[in-house]
């Protein structure tokens, strides 16, 4: 890499008492990149973001954002970043315009730029004409875009988005990602956390996080390619549970898991396994309606790497 990294994280550790929330995490993000941290709730994604914003002090390791050390120069760091927290923390009892003016003031946006940037943010969020509405009355998607607008009023070089689309309807989510890509095209570095697999696909590069550690990294296609050592088969059968039991015991099957109403089975060789599985299921009286090879998704990659689903709620904080 010729260009210096926009975000550099080296062996970052955060411990809360005896609990290690972030365990020797390293990555580097180039300018203009959209980088995703993908992992279940409580895996340490938010903790990493909060350290990069200077909200938490790292226990060990080093991190810098646009060249400033986050532990030593948090104020310099904050000048160059925008941050949007999980809950789109805006003041519900302030009007749209008042929220924008407030954050513009805090970011030190001055003079003609003050009006200009606020106008830009309103435009971007599609809130032109709704300036006088109370923020609390806005629907989720609007509120989300307003929060993004507030976070980037000062044209930050890096934007941190912590679960930016939680609780927002699909259409608004789509529109939101378009905005993110526009910003990236303008050279803004975006670090986003999510547990939505489909969203992770929008990122240039990803790091998969589980229990505070990075388990895989790369572009979405790289991850999918390398995470699964073998071929992936989709099996639709009834009853599903008995089919799963049976398939797991078959030779040549590396892994099998339920995905929706079907099974995803990782095998050493797709063509041979297709015939063997069909025969095994038929002889056990399990009716298989469909067995065919498919391209692995990020979710498959995640399951293969961690043995769990990223959106799973069983990993409570």
């Amino acid at each position: 890499m010729v260009e210096p990294p926009s975000i550099l994280v080296e062996e970052l550790v955060k411990r809360f008492g005896s609990f290690t929330a972030v365990d020797r995490v390293s990555f580097r993000i180039a300018g203009g990149e959209i980088f995703g941290l993908l992992g279940p709730n409580g895996s340490g994604k938010s903790t990493i973001i909060r350290m990069l914003c200077g909200l938490l002090t790292p226990t060990a390791g080093r991190a810098s954002v646009v060249g400033f050390n986050v532990a030593k120069e948090p104020e310099e760091v904050r000048r160059h970043i925008g941050y949007m927290s999980q809950k789109f923390s805006l003041y519900d009892d302030l009007r749209v315009i008042e929220n924008l003016e407030f954050f513009a003031g805090l970011y030190g946006v001055k003079g003609t730029l003050f009006k200009e940037r606020i106008g830009w943010a309103l435009e971007m969020a599609g809130l032109k004409g709704s300036e006088a509405l109370l923020t609390g009355e806005l629907a989720g998607g609007w509120k989300q875009r307003l929060a993004l607008g507030c976070a980037v009023l000062h044209r930050p070089r890096v934007v941190f988005l912590d679960e930016p689309t939680a609780g927002v309807d699909p259409l608004s989510r789509r529109r939101f990602w378009e905005l993110i890509h526009q910003m990236s095209a303008d050279g803004v570095t975006v670090l986003v956390t999510t547990h939505y697999m489909d969203e992770a696909e929008y990122c240039n590069r990803l790091a998969l996080i589980d229990a505070g550690r990075i388990v895989a990294g790369g572009s979405p296609s790289e991850i999918k390619r390398t995470a699964i050592r073998g071929d992936l088969l989709l099996v639709e059968c009834a009853p599903l549970g008995r089919g799963l039991e049976l398939i797991k015991r078959q030779p040549g099957v590396l892994d099998a898991a339920v995905f929706g109403a079907a099974l995803h089975v990782v095998v050493t060789a797709a063509e041979r396994a297709r015939i063997e599985l069909a025969a095994a299921l038929a002889s056990a009286g399990v009716e298989a309606s469909r067995i065919e090879p498919i391209a692995p998704s990020l979710e498959d990659a995640f399951v293969a790497l961690t043995g769990g689903h990223p959106g799973g709620s069983e990993r409570a904080q």
């Binding site: 914003c53 904050r78 927290s85 809950k87 923390s89 805090l106």
Partner: peptide, 14 residues
């Protein structure tokens, strides 16, 4: 409680 304190703290405010 509503999280705005954190939002404010990431601005350059001291």
């Amino acid at each position: 409680e509503i999280g705005t304190l954190e939002q404010v703290m990431v601005t350059p405010i001291r």
